[in-house]
Amino acid sequence: MAPQDILTALRDQNPLVHCITNYVAMNIAANVVLAAGASPAMVHAPEEIPEFTPICGALTVNIGTLSSAWLASMTTAATVAGAHNIPWVLDPVAHFISDYRKAAAQDLLALRPTVIRGNASEILALAGEAGAGKGADSGDSVDAAQSAANALATQWGAVVAVTGPVDYVTDGTQTAQVSGGSPLMPKITALGCSQTALMGAYCASGPAFQAALGALAHFKVAGNAAAKVANGPGSFQMHFLDALRSTRPQDLAQVIA
Rank of each mutant, 00 (worst) to 15 (best):
V89N: 11
P87Y: 00
Y100T: 08
H95M: 13
F96V: 03
G82H: 03
M74G: 09
L90M: 10
A83K: 15
A94G: 00
A77Q: 09
I86L: 13
L71W: 04
T76M: 15
A103H: 10
F96L: 12
S98R: 08
L71V: 09
I97Q: 06
A83Q: 15
N85D: 14
A83F: 12
A103G: 00
W70Y: 15
A94L: 06
W88T: 01
T79L: 13
G82K: 02
A77T: 04
H95D: 13
A81N: 08
M74P: 04
S73C: 08
V80D: 10
A77F: 01
A77G: 09
N85W: 00
A94P: 05
V93I: 11
M74C: 02
A81R: 02
A72F: 10
A83E: 15
W88M: 04
W88C: 00
G82F: 09
A77R: 00
S98M: 13
A77Y: 07
A81L: 06
T75V: 15
I97R: 08
W88K: 00
I86K: 02
P87L: 02
T75R: 12
P87H: 02
V93Q: 08
G82Q: 11
S98L: 13
A77C: 10
A72S: 15
L71H: 12
A103L: 12
K102C: 06
N85A: 13
K102A: 13
V89P: 01
A78H: 09
A78N: 13
A103I: 06
P92W: 03
V89H: 05
K102G: 07
D99N: 02
L71C: 09
H95S: 10
V80E: 11
V93A: 12
H84Y: 07
A78K: 00
A94N: 04
A94S: 07
D91P: 05
T79Q: 14
D99M: 11
H95P: 02
P87T: 02
V93W: 07
H95K: 10
L71K: 12
N85E: 12
I97V: 15
P87S: 00
H84K: 11
S73D: 10
P92V: 03
A77L: 10
L71P: 00
I86Q: 10
T79R: 15
L71Q: 05
L71F: 14
L90D: 01
W70T: 15
M74A: 10
A72P: 02
T79M: 14
F96D: 14
A81P: 04
D91I: 05
S73R: 06
I86V: 01
P87K: 00
W70I: 11
T75E: 14
A78R: 08
I86Y: 09
F96W: 14
A72M: 10
D91R: 06
A83H: 14
D99C: 05
M74H: 01
S98K: 00
A72K: 11
V89A: 12
I97N: 10
V93D: 07
I97H: 09
A94K: 03
T76S: 13
H84W: 09
A78I: 03
P87I: 08
V89M: 09
G82N: 14
T75M: 13
P87F: 01
R101Q: 04
D91M: 07
A78D: 13
V80L: 13
D91T: 04
